[in-house]
């Protein structure tokens, strides 16, 4: 998913946005345009985490919060591409959301939703106020009773201090959150590797490269790849294994001995 050309027109907007004063009246409109423009990225990341027991709508919402944070925090002056900054930020937000799911068994849906809205409100208000918001300000922003915001803030505190695995251990046979998170982690680590992988991928034969890209950045299953590339799933599996071994050796030659 080299999406860069598709988003090229947004780059000047990002630069303009990051140059604005916090109280500049154009901020909001510009941010809306940026969020709308980059929304496919957030949606794409949200979809990667689909089928983990969370409604896709929620994931997109969470990913969008991550996108807003990325837009707010990105500093073009420091160099670097927006994508290499935004993708980990958005994925991080989604991953945190999964971590947070562990309290879904104890905490009512209403509080969960509120947690997401409160997080969004806090980062937005901190920007405009130039300090952290008060519960009453969060309440006004979200049009909620202060009591509910207090409850939400407190719940956010409580669930974090509890054990993830302990909470899930009552559900026999289900994956522990540790496993879920670990799985997501592994997936996200790949994003990190994209930059270092690029030159290595360029050395691969076109078919091998396509297979690797489809599998790991396109999130396709081996069977799907097999039908797209026109070879058997077994063949895909074998090619993937060989290619990955080669890539791995190239990435961290020193680690092979272990």
């Amino acid at each position: 998913m080299t999406a860069d050309p598709e988003y090229a027109h947004l780059t000047p907007l990002l630069e303009e946005y990051s140059g604005l004063e916090p109280d500049d009246p154009r901020r909001e409109e510009l941010r809306d345009r940026l969020v709308t423009g980059y929304l496919p990225v957030a949606q794409h990341i949200a979809r990667r985490f689909n089928h983990r027991g969370e409604p896709l709508d929620d994931l997109v919402q969470v990913a969008t919060v991550g996108l807003i944070n990325a837009i707010d925090r990105f500093d073009p002056g420091k160099g670097g591409e927006f994508f290499s900054f935004a993708v980990p930020t958005i994925s991080g937000e989604v991953r945190r959301h999964f971590r947070d799911q562990s309290w879904s068994m104890r905490v009512p849906r209403r509080l969960k939703d509120m947690h997401v809205s409160i997080n969004g409100a806090v980062s937005e208000l901190s920007q405009t106020l130039g300090r952290s918001p008060k519960p009453s300000e969060i309440a006004r922003h979200l049009d909620l009773p202060v009591n509910e915001v207090l409850e939400g803030l407190e719940a956010a505190e409580a669930y974090r201090s509890s054990s993830l695995d302990e909470m899930l251990s009552s559900e026999d046979g289900s994956a522990t959150v540790g496993e879920l998170v670990g799985d997501a982690d592994a997936e996200l680590d790949r994003v990190d590797y994209r930059e270092s992988l690029r030159p290595l991928l360029a050395e691969l034969a076109p078919r091998e490269r396509t297979i690797v890209m489809l599998r790991f950045f396109g999130n396709r299953t081996q069977t799907q790849i097999a039908s797209e590339v026109g070879i058997s799933q077994m063949h895909v599996s074998r090619l993937l294994a060989q290619t990955l071994t080669r890539l791995r050796d190239r990435l961290d030659p020193g680690e092979r001995a272990l």
Partner: peptide, 13 residues
């Protein structure tokens, strides 16, 4: 992932 002895240690793969 191993189950850990202490209930509130995070266990990851």
């Amino acid at each position: 992932p191993r189950r850990c002895a202490r209930p509130s240690s995070v266990v990851r793969p």
